Simulated assay, not measured.
Amino acid sequence: MDFPFIGDILEFFQSVWDWIYSGIYDFVKEAFVLATKVAIYSYYQALLFALQVAYQTFQELVSEIGIGDKVQQYYNMLDADVRSVLSFFGIPDALMIIFSAIGTRWTLKFVPFVGR
């Protein structure tokens, strides 16, 4: 009597044994790697959301207070030659970026859970 399915049964049990012996470790390791990736991705998504909220809040505060109009008024009071030199070197754009970053960072402190 020849039983051809015995080899298949032995192969099945051998694959189960191999999975128990080394497959569980690889499975758990890959699960922790995936969980770490999800945690890092979620952290950066939350940080990006908080940054957007802080930036929009700061822009609204600045427009309500009228700081931008006052700065524009004082900038227009400068001599035309000085304004052209400042514009040539991009000073107004650089100052706008710097002040927006400072204000956004300050506003980010008030965002719950993510802001520091």
Rank of each mutant, 00 (worst) to 15 (best):
residue 24 I to V: 09
residue 58 F to Y: 13
residue 24 I to G: 02
residue 50 A to V: 02
residue 80 A to N: 13
residue 21 Y to H: 08
residue 28 V to L: 14
residue 79 D to W: 08
residue 57 T to Y: 02
residue 83 R to V: 09
residue 26 D to Y: 11
residue 56 Q to I: 09
residue 24 I to A: 06
residue 73 Q to S: 09
residue 30 E to C: 06
residue 107 T to D: 01
residue 34 L to F: 07
residue 55 Y to R: 11
residue 27 F to H: 00
residue 97 I to L: 10
residue 106 W to S: 11
residue 73 Q to M: 07
residue 77 M to L: 10
residue 9 I to G: 01
residue 51 L to H: 02
residue 69 D to I: 08
residue 81 D to C: 05
residue 48 L to Y: 09
residue 31 A to H: 11
residue 40 I to N: 00
residue 93 D to M: 10
residue 91 I to S: 06
residue 98 I to M: 07
residue 63 S to F: 03
residue 50 A to S: 09
residue 100 S to I: 01
residue 68 G to A: 06
residue 57 T to A: 10
residue 108 L to Q: 05
residue 86 L to D: 06
residue 46 A to Y: 00
residue 40 I to P: 00
residue 63 S to G: 05
residue 87 S to M: 03
residue 15 S to V: 09
residue 90 G to Y: 04
residue 108 L to P: 04
residue 74 Y to M: 07
residue 69 D to N: 11
residue 22 S to Q: 10
residue 42 S to M: 00
residue 39 A to F: 01
residue 12 F to C: 11
residue 74 Y to I: 05
residue 51 L to Q: 07
residue 88 F to Y: 13
residue 81 D to N: 15
residue 106 W to A: 13
residue 91 I to F: 14
residue 29 K to C: 14
residue 80 A to L: 15
residue 100 S to C: 01
residue 85 V to Q: 06
residue 106 W to G: 02
residue 44 Y to G: 04
residue 66 G to C: 07
residue 72 Q to K: 12
residue 93 D to G: 15
residue 63 S to T: 14
residue 61 L to Y: 08
residue 43 Y to E: 08
residue 51 L to Y: 10
residue 9 I to P: 00
residue 93 D to Q: 15
residue 16 V to G: 07
residue 92 P to M: 04
residue 8 D to T: 15
residue 43 Y to V: 04
residue 51 L to V: 05
residue 36 T to Y: 12
residue 63 S to E: 15
residue 111 V to P: 02
residue 105 R to N: 14
residue 73 Q to N: 13
residue 51 L to K: 01
residue 35 A to G: 11
residue 5 F to H: 07
residue 87 S to T: 14
residue 12 F to T: 15
residue 17 W to P: 00
residue 48 L to D: 11
residue 41 Y to I: 15
residue 6 I to P: 00
residue 27 F to A: 11
residue 26 D to P: 02
residue 76 N to D: 12
residue 54 A to Q: 00
residue 90 G to S: 06
residue 54 A to C: 03
residue 19 W to Q: 03
residue 107 T to W: 00
residue 114 V to C: 06
residue 61 L to M: 12
residue 57 T to N: 13
residue 102 I to D: 10
residue 91 I to D: 06
residue 35 A to K: 12
residue 13 F to P: 03
residue 78 L to Y: 04
residue 94 A to F: 05
residue 85 V to S: 07
residue 44 Y to A: 04
residue 38 V to K: 12
residue 9 I to T: 13
residue 114 V to S: 05
residue 88 F to E: 10
residue 67 I to K: 01
residue 84 S to V: 13
residue 46 A to S: 11
residue 39 A to E: 02
residue 68 G to E: 08
residue 4 P to I: 04
residue 49 F to D: 12
residue 28 V to A: 14
residue 61 L to Q: 10
residue 60 E to Q: 12
residue 82 V to S: 08
residue 109 K to Y: 09
